[in-house]
Design a protein around this nucleic acid. Sequence first.
DNA 1: CGGTATCCCCCGCGATACTG
DNA 2: CAGTATCGCGGGGGATACCG
Lengths: 230, 230
Amino acid sequence: MKGYSQFCPVAKGAEIFNERWTPLIIREMMCGSRRFNDLKRGNPMMSPSLLSQRLKFLEAAGVVEKITRKGETAEYALTESGRDLGEVVTRLGLWGLKWARSRLTRDDYDPNLLMWDIRRRIDTSGFPDRRVCISFMFRDMPSSRRAYWLVVDDGEVDLCMKFPGFDVDLAFITTSKTMADIWMGHTTIRKENRSGNLTLEGSRELKKNIDDWFTYSVFSDPEALRASLS
Amino acid sequence: MKGYSQFCPVAKGAEIFNERWTPLIIREMMCGSRRFNDLKRGNPMMSPSLLSQRLKFLEAAGVVEKITRKGETAEYALTESGRDLGEVVTRLGLWGLKWARSRLTRDDYDPNLLMWDIRRRIDTSGFPDRRVCISFMFRDMPSSRRAYWLVVDDGEVDLCMKFPGFDVDLAFITTSKTMADIWMGHTTIRKENRSGNLTLEGSRELKKNIDDWFTYSVFSDPEALRASLS
DNA sequence: CGGTATCCCCCGCGATACTG
DNA sequence: CAGTATCGCGGGGGATACCG
């Protein structure tokens, strides 16, 4: 993007922040993604060349640093400047949550992204010492994005888009919109379960403890999120 | 800008906020501009058609409202949503002030914009009950943007780019960069006056009271600005 | 003054392929 | 897995003219 030819700090900030995709790259990093393909996965519609270009620009702008250790794959991290900018991203998100919810379209409810988000925040600390498989079935989606499996093993959570071949311990059966609304904290698992929009099938134990291991989006509690900002 | 196809509130916010020029339009409104040409003057590099387009978009997004009173010229104002978004703009500015200052280029020091900003914040309450004319001469600028006059009369401040024909009560003689640095609070009038980067010629009275009527940018006091945010 | 209409260029960026 | 290379188009947006 060309500059604004203004000395105003808002203009100088916008020259960096207002590039397309930039807030979403920073958000992804704040959520813990450090590798190229993780960043890409969090932004599936972004082409790799554009992501590469943006990362270089943000690096030059002092927002991101690339860490290359020999033998290891490169990682990207926010600098102090980047973490500061991350607070702007969060506040933009809080604004979006409050004022732009009505602009959500069907296209926005992509289960790929939703599952990628959910996967990241599964709390495995209370899980049994064996492999656990949790399936998600989105009735409203075409076969290509209808079914997902989270495989929890030894504290690791893997997201599969093909049946991994393991017994399913718990199945979520719902729509992508209901699941996204749950994830965003606009409703709860228990409420949607009771109303019939969400069916849970499988382990009683996992169902009982669901509030312990199924962690909602950080935006599900706006007050707490806002309070966490400086 | 096409959307991101993401339900994430950051993405929905960015679909509105991250359009080119949008933060600067909102900043301009926060500073009190309400009419089309005032908004345009605060963003001289923006074409009128694009400004018109953006205003329509922001109106549709619920950020701006257009107020049309018959017989009067249309005005634009921030809605509650827009004022909320204004806080994001301010925080982006605070970030830019802290982390993007080094990216300032010569192009950014446009005296037109600087004078437009200064004009807006002259405090006329302590001025005498007669017309006062204050000139600004930027030594480093070509003739087209070398000289400006602020004419204060009856509490109104007019910005002239041609000599208005009035006696000059006080003259600022400096460079655009020094004046911008003063305006942004990176230095002060007195300091630059002493060091010789700024020459003040004219009324002793106006010089003595200069801290009363020459108001710096809101960004000159970041702590106070931050404290003013919710 | 307060915009709209038009034209056209350029480049951002999406798509795809490919490479180490 | 971690990117780079290439290509082509679409439309964003800059410039200018014009209208009510």
